[in-house]
Structures are given as C-alpha cells and as structure tokens.
Design a protein around this nucleic acid. Structure first.
Length: 153
DNA sequence: GCCAACGTTGGC
DNA sequence: GCCAACGTTGGC
C-alpha cells in the first residue's frame, strides 16, 4: 500500500465537504498537471492512504486522513465549458485528465504547515520542498507514521 | 496584493 | 530542441 498527500483548496473542497459527501466520498477533479495525473493513472491504488491537505487558505496544513477509493475515470470537468477546469483541447475520445474517488477516514486536528516545517521527522516530505506545486505527492511509510504520531498528540 | 518558483506554450 | 514569455500556484 502506498501513501499520498493531496492538496485541496478548502474553498473548493474542504475536509468538511468531504465529511458531508455521500458515503464520505468525493471525486478528485481539477488536476491539471501531468505529473499528478500520472500518479493517479499509474500508481494510486484503492486503499492507499491519503493526507488531506488544505492549501491556498488562511491555515494551510493537513486536515484529515482519507483513502483512495478507486473509480479512476476521465475528469468530467474537462468537458464542461462552464467549468473553470474546462480544457478545450480535451476530447471524449482522447481525454487528457483523470479523476479518482477519495473517501474520508477521519478528520484530524489541523497539522499546520508551520508545524510540519518545524518537525525534523517530516523534513523529507515532498510537499515541503521549496517551490513545490504538485497537488499530489507521494508520502513514504516513515513520513506517514510520523504524521500520524504527531496528529494524535 | 506581492512575488518566487515552476510548468506550459509557441516561435524559431 | 531551445528558450523567452506567460500563466499558475500558493505561502505570506
């Protein structure tokens, strides 16, 4: 089993939105970066652990634990001209972008970005790398365990 | 709102 | 294939 960190802007999809969703599951749409898409396509498996991260907000940080539920398919928003994620270069025959379902495991205390940066045992996390902009990044088992240990404090 | 960092685009 | 210009991300 693998682990991931997935960024979401709480204005669009927050941990509470996920908690309120039917079966506590949301389709992860709007990924428009090839590297992140390829993680969904090639590496993410149902059951994988997910650190749900709030970005571009007042209090960025990890807000909960989730799980990859599967159901990989073309991202519906790329075909919708009304959507900010509309991609005119994408076709139903050859879709560019994918979505995958994510299910909430549990909401946690917020683990703020500042605390993550200050934590020696989390220093290797990709999301903390300077200039990192990937919305999906792999998390090592050691990092996962370290985050869990810290969340339960 | 600012700005550094990065990805993508498109001319050549 | 190079690379400058541009757009986006995301913390502050």
């Amino acid at each position: 089993m693998a682990y991931w960190l997935m960024k979401s802007e709480p204005d669009e999809a927050s941990i509470d939105d996920l908690a309120r969703a039917p079966r506590r599951t949301l389709a992860w749409t709007g990924v428009r970066n090839y590297q992140a898409r390829n993680f969904m396509r090639d590496a993410m498996q149902p059951g994988d652990g997910v650190l749900f991260y709030h970005s571009s907000c007042a209090e960025p940080g990890i807000a909960g634990l989730a799980r990859v539920a599967g159901n990989l398919q073309p991202d519906a928003t790329q075909f919708d001209p009304a959507s900010p994620y509309f991609d005119p270069k994408s076709t139903r025959e050859q879709p560019r972008w994918l979505q995958i379902d994510v299910t909430l495991e549990r909401k946690t205390r917020l683990l703020p970005l500042a605390e993550m940066r200050a934590a020696v045992e989390l220093a290797t996390m990709q999301v903390l790398r300077r200039g990192n902009r990937l919305s999906i990044t792999p998390v090592t088992p050691a990092e996962w365990q370290a985050v869990l240990a810290r969340l339960d404090r």
